[in-house]
Simulated scan of single mutants.
Amino acid sequence: KVNPRYTSQTCFNCQHIAKENRQTQAKFECVKCGYKANADINAAKNILSAGHAVLSAEGGRSQGRPLKQKTCDGREKVA
Rank of each mutant, 00 (worst) to 15 (best):
T7H: 01
R22A: 06
E76K: 12
S56W: 15
H52P: 00
A79I: 01
G64M: 03
D73Y: 14
Q9F: 04
T10Q: 07
L55S: 02
T24L: 07
C14M: 02
N38V: 05
Y35Q: 08
Q63C: 05
Y6T: 01
Q63A: 13
G64T: 03
D73Q: 13
V54M: 06
K36N: 15
A39Q: 08
C72S: 14
T7K: 01
A53M: 06
C14S: 10
K70Y: 07
I17K: 11
H16Q: 05
Q69H: 08
N42K: 09
R65F: 12
K70E: 04
S62N: 12
G51L: 14
P4I: 01
V78E: 09
K68Q: 14
C11W: 02
E76I: 09
K68E: 09
A18H: 09
S56Q: 15
A44C: 09
E58G: 04
G59E: 04
E29K: 09
E58W: 05
V2Q: 07
F28K: 01
K27N: 11
A57S: 14
N21S: 11
L55W: 07
E29Y: 06
I41D: 11
N13K: 14
R61H: 12
A37G: 11
R61K: 15
Q69V: 02
K32A: 08
G34M: 03
A50K: 14
F28A: 00
S8A: 04
G60P: 03
G59T: 02
A53V: 10
A26D: 11
N42G: 10
I47E: 06
D73P: 15
N38Q: 08
G74D: 09
G74C: 08
A43S: 12
G51P: 02
Q23T: 10
C14R: 07
A44D: 01
R5S: 13
A26P: 07
Q69D: 03
S62W: 11
R75W: 08
T24M: 07
A43L: 07
I47W: 00
C11N: 02
R65M: 11
S56K: 15
L48P: 01
N13G: 04
L67N: 13
